[in-house]
């Protein structure tokens, strides 16, 4: 473990620090939306979905647009609530936590990367990368070395003090990857991380993401409609008709 990461553990109240072999488990997840705002009908997106993310493995979810891939990722990351079922993050059910503990769980154990990079526009590249660690309670001085090291590893050493508006799409996405890795989370959740990039940048980001996740020993939950990218992961699931089917790898029983 990187020394600064040990500091994170020492520095903050890490309520869910126990290492689980399956950092994310989705049990019997069903998600339904109301058909219209005032309508009585419901649309089923996910039905009795089970999924386990194993530690250190990469898992991709593929499927057609509108099949519910992003919804599944949002639920897995504790951003959205399932209509029924449980989401366990390191064995802790998101539904049992208040806002503060749910936020803390997300901050320490999950890193997000989205198609739109979702960086803080008023913050420099370095500040964006440091943000999750500072939210976790570390001072800027403490978390600066790791943030700089991540930026350096992703070829952004000369962009640390640039604002997102001064960076290209590929550079922004690389900053988002650094930010996702900053707190050494158990799982990186990426939703179409290369969807908005040109082919050259997309391939570069794919390579960096997969390499870094492997190097850092993190799990990856990738949602994409890019089959080439997906099949570079250890496990591939197809989301179709509200359910998952294993397309590649061994998968894990819940």
């Amino acid at each position: 473990m990187h020394p600064t990461d040990r500091q994170i553990g020492d520095h903050i109240d890490r309520p869910f620090a126990k290492q689980f072999d399956r950092p994310i488990q989705l049990l019997d997840i069903t998600k339904r939306f109301k058909a219209a705002q005032d309508g009585e009908g419901e649309i089923t997106i996910l039905e009795d979905v089970d999924l386990c993310i194993a530690r250190g493995e990469s898992t991709a979810i593929i499927g057609k647009s509108g099949s519910g891939k992003s919804t599944l990722l949002h639920i897995a990351g504790g951003l959205d609530s399932p209509t029924s079922g449980k989401v366990l993050c390191n064995g802790v059910d998101f539904a049992t936590l208040d806002d503060k503990r749910r936020s803390s769980l997300r901050n320490l154990h999950i890193g997000f990367i989205f198609q739109a990079n979702l960086l803080l526009e008023d913050f420099t590249a370095l500040e964006n990368v440091m943000a999750p660690a500072m939210i976790a309670g570390r001072t800027a001085r403490d978390c600066r070395p790791r943030a700089l090291s991540l930026l350096e590893r992703l070829g952004l050493g000369d962009r640390t003090h640039h604002l997102p508006s001064q960076l290209s799409g590929g550079e922004k996405q690389r900053i988002a990857i650094c930010r996702a890795l900053m707190n050494e989370p158990d799982v990186i959740m990426a939703d179409e991380p290369t969807g908005a990039l040109d082919e050259e940048n997309a391939q570069e980001v794919e390579r960096l993401l997969l390499d870094l996740v492997k190097e850092e020993g993190r799990s990856l939950l990738l949602v994409t409609h890019n089959n080439d990218f997906a099949y570079r992961c250890d496990n591939v699931y197809l989301l179709k008709n509200h359910a998952l089917s294993l397309e590649k790898g061994l998968g894990l029983d819940v």
Partner: peptide
């Protein structure tokens, strides 16, 4: 709205 949503996404609690 957007920065707050992003901050909450990366783990900032509402109280913070």
């Amino acid at each position: 709205m957007k920065p707050i949503s992003i901050a909450k996404l990366i783990g900032m609690a509402d109280s913070q």
